[in-house]
Design a protein around this nucleic acid. Structure first.
Lengths: 226, 226
DNA sequence: CGGCATCCTCTTTGATACTG
DNA sequence: CAGTATCAAAGAGGATGCCG
């Protein structure tokens, strides 16, 4: 991408990750950790091979992604984030939080992968941080996600829970609505969500207070917008 | 921009603000609040009129920006963020924090505007939140910025301070380096930074601990990357 | 399978001229 | 000053083919 050529931190960041698909490549590597080229293609439906190749090259050049060459025992090369790359997590989180509002319903011909739920889910919070932790096993889009509370925050990761309090299985938008407390369980079950286990713990997950922020638009001073 | 057509919060967000220039338009409106078309052009050197027009239209359609039409007394139409738009502040902050690492030195033919410093600066923290607040007046790029501590955090806004503890005036990269504590004052002054006032308070501004985050790459579970 | 190259088409940009 | 119109150049998307 053409550089913005601005001495500005935001513009500099966008010079690196502002290209189409770039942040979604980072999303995949953040969620799935270490991926083969093919895994990335699967997690980025719609990307074409030449674009994926070019993005990977650019991100490697920028120090965001590392190409792990297949040393003898291993057959296929892998991609993973560098530490600089994992530092993009707050960016993805902020975007996911903002975008969660737009997840009301899947559009026709939207693609879906289960692990994508991790971003909108991790914006929830445990209402009672001092209670014993909650573990929810989700099955959606043919993938498994574990949702766990962690001192008030909620983490979501692809994987299988060893001992989940409750299992949810169903269409992603409904599962999401249940977790957000926007859809009563009875209704969800009527719509095709399978629920098993201790459903009471779900009530402890609540939408995080959008501490929103805007620390920038603060007090005004003389001279604002002169 | 073509939609990613993914049922994913991050992709949905990027469908709205992933276009080239879009987040920089938001940056301007976040920092300057209410802008005329011309103000935006000035704050976005390199953007062309048709692209600016199209971005504004798209952002208005998406509910991020509001077009304030000139009611009789006022002559020129203005643009401002909606509340949904100001909710993008955490995204810009995260990007600014990440991009701050790339601000070592301005490249030749980088453009610069003083108010852009607000993002890398607000990533600092006051080392002693309980001390009386620090106010720094900065002059860079022909603009004035006020830096103030606020219960440990640091805010930076365009404008003139009524009573600053210390004044800094000089090239942006040097001013930034001084604030970050990376450049001793004596050296900075030798390089053309003018400093006036109570320089001791500068020592209380320190780089915020990159709580970094990555709440996503958490514990691994069976089934990770099967 | 991993990965790059090529050809083609369509969309998005950038630059600039132009109008109310 | 705000914004549209026009056009050339770049980039994205899709298909396909190649090579280790």
């Amino acid at each position: 991408m053409r550089s913005y050529a601005q001495y500005c931190a935001v513009a500099r960041a966008l010079d690196v990750v502002g290209d189409r698909w770039a942040l979604l490549v980072v999303r995949e590597l953040l969620l799935r950790r270490r991926c083969r080229y093919k895994d990335l293609q699967d997690g980025l439906p719609g990307i074409s091979t030449n674009v994926l190749t070019e993005r990977l090259r650019d991100l490697v050049d920028a120090g965001v992604v590392r190409h792990v060459d297949p040393s003898p025992p291993i057959a296929t090369p892998l991609y993973e984030l560098t530490s600089r790359g994992t530092e993009l997590a707050p960016v993805l989180h902020a975007l996911g939080t903002w975008g969660a509002e737009l997840m009301a319903a899947p559009q026709r011909d939207d693609t879906f992968r289960g692990h994508w739920l991790a971003f909108p889910i991790s914006r929830l919070a445990d209402s009672a941080p001092n209670d014993p932790p909650v573990t929810v096993q989700i099955r959606a889009g043919g993938e498994l996600i574990v949702v766990e509370t962690d001192h008030g925050a909620v983490r979501a990761n692809p994987g299988r829970a060893t001992a989940a309090d409750v299992d949810l299985d169903g269409p992603p938008d409904l599962v999401l609505a249940v977790l957000r407390g926007e859809l009563p369980l009875a209704e969800a079950e009527a719509c095709g969500v399978r629920v098993a286990g201790d459903v009471k713990v779900l009530a402890r997950l609540v939408p995080a207070t959008t501490s929103a922020a805007a620390s920038i638009p603060a007090t005004t001073h003389e001279g604002d917008n002169p």
